[in-house]
């Protein structure tokens, strides 16, 4: 019985870490498209907003406001229309975690 519990725990941990890796990779890939303008992993080298370390809620709000037109922009109101709410959240998660 003791072994069974440990096995279950290890197994769940394995699934959890696999799922984490998968989600992390998807978020990483999704966020990388932004890096062409905003710098690798969001570290802008100047003239564009850095995304690294931006609080998640702030980024979600900004991008959704670009998408709705509430916040004026030059290109972001046109590009943000390519993203779903879930994708915006993934990108925000990724950049919030970048130091």
């Amino acid at each position: 019985m003791k072994y069974r519990k440990i096995a279950l725990a290890v197994s769940l941990l394995g699934f959890a870490s696999a799922a984490f890796a998968d989600n992390h990779t998807i978020s990483r890939n999704m966020a990388s498209a932004c890096a062409s303008c905003h710098g690798t992993n969001g570290h802008s080298v100047g003239g564009m907003d850095p995304l690294a370390g931006m609080p998640k809620d702030e980024m979600i709000r900004k991008v959704k406001d670009f998408r709705s037109g509430a916040k004026p922009a030059t290109v972001m109101q046109q590009l943000s229309k390519g993203y779903t709410d879930q994708q915006i959240e993934m990108i925000a998660n990724y950049y919030a975690a970048q130091k």
């Binding site: 890096a35 062409s36 303008c37 710098g39 080298v45 100047g46 003239g47 564009m48």
Partner: peptide, 10 residues
């Protein structure tokens, strides 16, 4: 110009 600097760096 900021685009150029950032995309070259990336």
């Amino acid at each position: 110009l900021a685009w150029a600097k950032n995309i070259w760096a990336d």
